[in-house]
Design a protein around this nucleic acid. Structure first.
Length: 587
RNA sequence: GCCUCCGUAGCUCAGUGGAUAGAGCGAGGGACUUCUAAUCCCGAGGUCGCAGGUUCGAAUCCUGCCGGGGGCACCA
């Protein structure tokens, strides 16, 4: 096994057409060859149509010239025909296709390159609040962010995950004060019943404390003093706060483990981390004349965006009461990530409603000189998770949907579906399959919808074994593994002289395009394109499976088909892994 | 008011300049002595919100309009 990059056929064909363009019409050199997969051949190029006007000729004439130029080149193209108004239908030799597959099979990376090498990419995602339970609102950021971290890392980027925990704020004054006055309250993980989390217990206690804060002015006073104690570093208060953070993180980790996301405590860099930087940031922005006083507060007025009154929109650098909020923390954060982490790509995976906020943060960072042309900063927005009624997803009672409940529900439905299909499955195996299928279903449903749009959370649809679901892909993988097991998991050797059947050809071309699909995800930051690719791959395999028997075939056809099976299984497993979804060997 | 996202089959969604606009679900028909029928195959179903424009060519790009979501100072 090697790690050599295997250039996709599409790229090879595109290079060849580019050369043909430069050869036939030197003045058009460098033009896009517009090569795409085709229904009418292996590939097609639309270059003649697009460039005819610039070449001051008819598309068909330019197409003829390109065909002549391609013929004189020893490129990957075995046949090229003109069709319709000037499309070039391009066919590549069977042998070349087999060789591509052999090269990918021989590569640990499936021949995929590392186009993102040299990028140090910070991905900000998940960011739950300490002393609060993770809920449906954390689902998309966690799942999408994690998948992007995997894909970009695989493509060669140095990924720095940042879990920007909500671990700071006045609410901790109330909570700590309440815990102090109620030592009998149980909230540590080890004191709780199985199935409840410290985050859940703290969430409840916080609500109680909040009610008390509103009802009892003396408690409110003590809470406010506790906020001051926390901010000034009072030993006992900080110790208690740390304890709360640690217990909450433990609860988050249970969810992360279950979801199978990469986040670890090392990735936690919460809001509190930036406290010691805020004063500096404010000074710097003030001295630069970017932050200015307004109505007693210190703000940065946007030079690009205005509000309803027609006045520039401000970022709140320092509140009238002297406190710092979210805007200031995010300014300190972007400075830290650029100056200290030396990142040249910053991604913020958050709700689309924060678009304006990040636009303002990026603008301010640019004006401050932190964010330069060498650094890319992007908000990676996503839409809302909707319930069956088309409204933001809530429980029947109108409450927040806890993430753990949502996962339990999905796993339970998956369990029911699996049990119905195979009632004889031992309970232990059933549980294991249900967990993998249920979690995979939730993640896939989230990732397979286009990121920016809202999507409807529908458990029954997502655990279905039909259609574009995680379960379907997992199942496709197990079927292929089953064939390979029956064949004894052989070391396959491809005979490149065998003629390709249509279904084999379609599958092979799809396998060769994995690289292209991943690169596209790396550029657009849209994991649903990977989902779409894998679904198409699974369907191409199914067509192949129906049309071409593997185990009964004669050698050397059998060996080649086993190679197709092996590469498909590995690509499916690999792709699912980049989505953060497991690919079991049996279901 | 301004900004932004969305509008594609009955439903849920792909498709961002190319050939008859594609899947899944649902409804109809068919296929298990055959590598997992948890599957597959066949047919039905569309003024791509509306109207202009650019282009040889537009679901895709531009403009306007209609409808829906979201955002626009001391919460995060």
């Amino acid at each position: 096994m090697t790690n050599h990059e295997v250039l996709p056929l599409l790229g090879q064909v595109a290079d060849s057409v580019s050369q043909a363009i430069a050869h036939a019409r030197p003045e058009l050199a460098g033009a896009d060859p517009l090569v795409r997969r085709s229904e009418h051949a292996d590939f097609q190029s639309n270059a003649a149509l697009a460039l005819a006007k610039r070449a001051r000729t008819r598309p068909t004439e330019l197409a003829d010239a390109l065909i002549a130029a391609v013929a004189g080149d020893r490129g990957p193209i075995t046949r090229v025909d003109m069709s319709g108004p000037g499309f070039l239908n391009i066919t590549v030799p069977d042998q070349l296709i087999w060789n591509q597959l052999a090269a990918r099979l021989a590569s640990l990376r499936l021949g995929v390159g590392t186009p993102n090498e040299g990028q140090r990419t910070v991905i900000d995602y998940s960011a739950p609040n300490i002393a609060k339970e993770m809920h449906v609102g954390h689902l998309r950021t966690t799942i999408i962010g994690d998948s992007l971290a995997r894909v970009l890392g695989f493509l060669g980027a140095e990924v720095i995950r940042q879990n920007h925990l909500g671990d700071w704020g006045t609410q901790f004054g109330m909570l700590i004060q309440y815990l102090d006055e109620h030592p009998e309250a149980t909230w540590h993980h080890d004191e709780l019943e199985p199935g409840t989390s410290a985050a859940s217990a703290l969430d409840d206690l916080y609500r109680t404390a909040r009610a008390l804060f509103d009802a009892d002015p003396e408690f409110a006073d003590r809470s406010r003093r506790r906020v001051v104690a926390l901010q000034s570093g009072d030993h006992d208060t900080v110790t208690r706060w740390r304890e709360i953070v640690a217990e909450s993180e433990r609860a988050f980790r249970d969810i992360y483990d279950r979801l199978g996301v990469l986040l670890t405590p090392d990735d936690s860099v919460g809001e509190s981390f930036y406290n010691h930087l805020l004063a500096d940031v404010v000074t710097e922005l003030t001295e630069a004349g970017i932050a200015v006083g307004s109505e007693g507060a210190l703000v940065i007025f946007s030079e690009e965006v205005t509000g309803p009154d027609g006045n520039p929109i401000p970022l709140m650098v320092r509140k009238r009461d002297g406190g710092y909020g979210y805007d200031t923390t995010d300014l300190a954060t972007i400075r830290y990530r650029i100056h200290d982490l030396k990142s040249n790509r910053l991604l913020y995976v958050t709700d689309s409603r924060q678009a304006l906020h990040f636009q303002l943060i990026f603008e301010a960072a640019r004006r401050a000189g932190w964010l330069t042309d060498n650094v890319e900063a992007a908000h990676v927005p996503y839409g809302t998770v909707l319930g069956p009624d088309g409204r933001p997803f809530k429980t029947r009672a109108g409450g927040t949907v806890r993430l753990m409940d949502l996962l339990d529900d999905s796993v339970a439905r998956a369990r029911a579906v699996v049990h119905e299909k195979d009632p004889d499955l031992p309970a232990e195996e059933l549980d294991q399959i249900a967990e993998q299928a249920g979690i995979g279903a939730v993640k896939y449903a989230d990732l397979s919808n286009s990121r920016i749009k809202d999507y409807t959370f529908d458990v029954d649809r997502m655990v279905s074994f039909n259609g574009n679901t995680g379960v379907y892909l997992q199942y496709a993988h197990t079927r292929i593994r089953s064939i390979l097991r029956k064949a004894g998991d052989p070391h396959v050797v491809i005979d490149p002289t065998i003629e390709l059947q249509p279904a084999e050809r379609a599958l092979a071309l799809q396998l060769d395009a994995y690289d292209t699909a991943l690169t596209e995800v790396g550029e657009t930051l849209e994991p649903h394109k990977l989902c779409g690719y894998l679904y198409d791959l699974a369907r191409a395999f199914t067509s192949f499976y129906e049309a071409c028997h593997v185990l009964n075939a004669e050698e050397p056809v059998r060996g080649n088909r086993l190679a197709l099976c092996q590469l498909t299984a590995r690509t499916l497993r690999h792709g699912l892994n980049l989505l953060g979804i497991s690919a079991p060997d049996r279901m």
